[in-house]
Design a protein around this nucleic acid. Structure first.
Lengths: 210, 210
DNA sequence: ATTGACATACCAACCGGTATGTATGTTTAT
DNA sequence: ATAAACATACATACCGGTTGGTATGTCAAT
């Protein structure tokens, strides 16, 4: 065995190459949409050639699928799913996540990466639709679980439908993101955060919300 | 003046030609997205040639802009703006509009034409962004006006922020449409309608909503 | 007869995809 | 241990179909 087992950046580093393609692809897709983005632009940004791309992915669609499964899923996992799953104060964590939304115009204009791809590609290619649907479902499920746990703790009224509320929260969140993107308005996002947090607080058992 | 002033379908009928291009364009854009749709497919569906298209519009983008300004704006006007403006029971009308949403899987999978274009094109081309933003703004404004009028009638609690609630409703509506599109689920839309109506009813002054 | 309203034919560039070559590991037989 | 044999991981060059756009011709209306 030589010294160079890992950590070192060999000229041959398939994992790194694949990761660079995914990140560059994500950024370009986020900018121009999937159909609107250019493979050569992705290659330029990633610093690899078309041969490398088509070694790791056998079509542009396959790259898009991988971007959803790896990059977008990872972002969702880090920002929403993981914190919610590990929290023992789920409702507070949920509110904190929502309040953690970046509300500058720059971020607003970008929109939600998941929703961007879902809206553009769902009717165009089934692979995209299935993958975005899986991510939405996992997202809603995890929020619903968190709300159910909050209910078990007595932090949430027992008569509310956790699943319906989870759908409501995710829908409202994506809706605000959509409108804010079109209006290039971080202010819309701020108002949305306030509104959603107020709504969640109104679901607490003994509350003062007049 | 001859008899043939209007109504008759002359072989030369620029207004009709333009309208056919807009309708065919709308349908193709609704199916495949703007960047994904094919001009020749639009021409085939409209039954006109490329010469006719480029006589009425000087680019594909210009056609897209006209689809937003004419077709999408008209749909929004008919379903939301006009009923809300003319109603003397604005809150009930708003609820009726929401409940009038088609909740079959077919419609769900199509999504909202306005949101489809907004999400796909806002970052790609400024003309699309500006036009979708104008439509969202008009939509929210009209809902806000309706809520304010409901407030003046005493049909809505005086302490609520009409504009914030209008944004909330439109955002939630578009969010549900987005998720339902990805999930191809009319059931999601049904749940959304129920949730939004319940929310609106909770804004009434003296109410029983436990 | 001149302008608007199209039709037809065609172009040219972009871009996803491929064919092919090559350098770098990895295994296997001796 | 080592070399052959093979597989992986790219690089380069190029193809060809798609598609937005144009140039030109023709017909109708005033």
């Amino acid at each position: 065995m030589s010294i160079a087992t890992s950590e070192v950046t060999n000229r041959r580093d398939p994992a790194r190459t694949r990761e660079r393609l995914l990140m560059a692809g994500f950024e370009e897709v986020y900018r121009a949409g999937f159909q609107g983005c250019d493979l050569n632009a992705i290659l330029g940004k990633a610093g690899v050639t078309k041969g490398a791309l088509y070694h790791h992915f056998n079509s542009k669609d396959a790259l898009g699928h991988a971007i959803l499964e790896d990059v977008v899923a990872r972002i969702t996992e880090q920002k929403w799913l993981e914190p919610l799953r590990t929290s023992d104060t789920p409702l507070d964590t949920l509110i904190a996540i929502i309040e953690g939304t970046f509300t500058d115009d720059e971020h607003a204009a970008g929109g939600c990466p998941l929703n961007n791809l879902a809206q553009e590609m769902s009717r165009v290619e089934e692979g995209f639709r299935a993958r975005t649907a899986a991510l939405f479902t996992a997202w809603i499920d995890t929020v619903a679980d968190a709300l159910t746990r909050a209910q078990a703790q007595g932090a949430l009224r027992p008569n509310i439908d956790a699943r319906a509320q989870a759908q409501f929260i995710v829908a409202a969140y994506e809706g605000y993101m959509s409108i804010a993107k079109s209006l290039k308005s971080g202010a819309v996002l701020e108002a949305g955060v306030k509104q959603m947090v107020a709504h969640l607080n109104s679901l607490r058992p003994e509350d003062s919300h007049g």
